[in-house]
Amino acid sequence: MKRQRGESAARIAFGAFDSLATLVAVLDADHRVVFANAALEDALGLPRRLVEGTLLVDWFQDGASLVHALDGLERNAYAALRYEAQLRRTQREPLPVHVIVTRAEAPHRAVVELVPLEAQVRKEREERLVDQAAANKELVRNLAHEIKNPLGGIRGAAQLLDLELSTPALRDYTQVIVHEADRLQGLVDRLLAPHRSPQVVGDVNIHEVCERVRTLVLAEYPAGLSIQRDYDTSIPEFRGDREQLIQAVLNVVQNAAQALAERRARGDALIVLRTRVARQVTLGSHRHRLALELHVIDNGPGIPHSIKDRVFLPLVSAREGGSGLGLTLAQTFVQQHQGLIECESAPGRTVFKIVIPLP
């Protein structure tokens, strides 16, 4: 009974750690686990009641580093220590983790945070994508400021000049200037579109979005392209801007269809739309119990290595004549739904994964 009261008190005191995506253990002066959060429970494959009360060092391939870190913490040799280790797991391969040992606010307590190295890499990649989006917004503002006003002047001057010219051949040149100014104005307007239009939020069924996109793309490419469905029909509706999401998915699927030009000519171009539910997903610094994953998979040549890390930047395109805005706008629309688009590509298989939190 006394132990149960102690466990209950620890869960009340440290229950906030359950909302973290990283693995957390709170230790007593004897290095025994007094609290294990839900993420650590999942990683070890054991209920926390079997973890709490054990020596944390026993869960490591080499516990000597943890003992050294905890001893140093008790001697006030440092406030925190970081190192890498291998976490033992029940009937699974050891998990490589980044270990952070710090002193807890409660007396004679230490907090050990374990960040799976794979999760660390993913977090860094997501942070880069978020930073890219922020840089994109700044680029858009600069483009709008530096291009829009001069374009208006160029177009107006060309129109005035056109009225003064009597030679049809010379007037053709002014029409070219007006046409190209209008084209650049359209490019700037497309860049600004996501930041101008407010979201129209309602209930969204992701499969209705996919079906609308599938119909549009097959109408544009009626020959040589097959778009297969692989849907998890149990995915619930969620709140979002349906038109924004249609545009985001359409941009990704159109990008895939354009990359399949050679396979379309041979008649074996394939795009797969696959939906799944992911559990315990971390996007940025937030952990979500459930998330929608929409995979857009194609059997094209893959993204050139030279632009693979920059595909979501504006004006970056592997296609001759491409504006390089489709994926930029898609990423912006998905991020406005607290989600993210990731990409993995190799010759013969490219996957764009759209992840959006579910309620």
Rank of each mutant, 00 (worst) to 15 (best):
S306I: 15
L143I: 13
L87T: 03
R214M: 02
R11M: 11
A64Q: 10
Q331Y: 09
H98T: 12
R11V: 04
Q120W: 13
S285K: 10
D309V: 12
A223T: 15
P301E: 14
D71C: 07
D189Y: 02
Q132R: 13
D182A: 05
D232W: 07
V140W: 03
E105K: 11
E344R: 12
V281A: 06
Y173V: 12
F333V: 03
L216G: 01
H145E: 15
C210L: 13
H207R: 05
D71S: 08
G53E: 00
L192K: 09
L294S: 03
V130P: 04
T54D: 10
D268Q: 06
A25I: 07
R3L: 12
V281T: 12
A64I: 04
L66H: 05
Y78M: 09
R349E: 15
R89F: 08
N76M: 08
Q4I: 13
L315Y: 10
L313R: 13
V209F: 00
L245A: 00
L329Y: 00
V355R: 12
Y231R: 11
L44F: 00
L187Q: 09
E138C: 05
V34H: 03
G300A: 10
R183I: 11
P222T: 07
Q336R: 15
G326M: 01
S166R: 11
K137M: 11
K123C: 11
A259E: 10
R89Q: 13
L329P: 03
D182R: 08
E126W: 08
R75W: 04
R49T: 02
N149T: 15
A77L: 14
R49K: 05
Q247A: 08
D131N: 15
Q258T: 07
A248G: 01
E113Y: 09
V296D: 01
R183C: 05
P194S: 07
I227M: 08
V201N: 00
S317Y: 00
H207L: 04
R82C: 14
L27E: 02
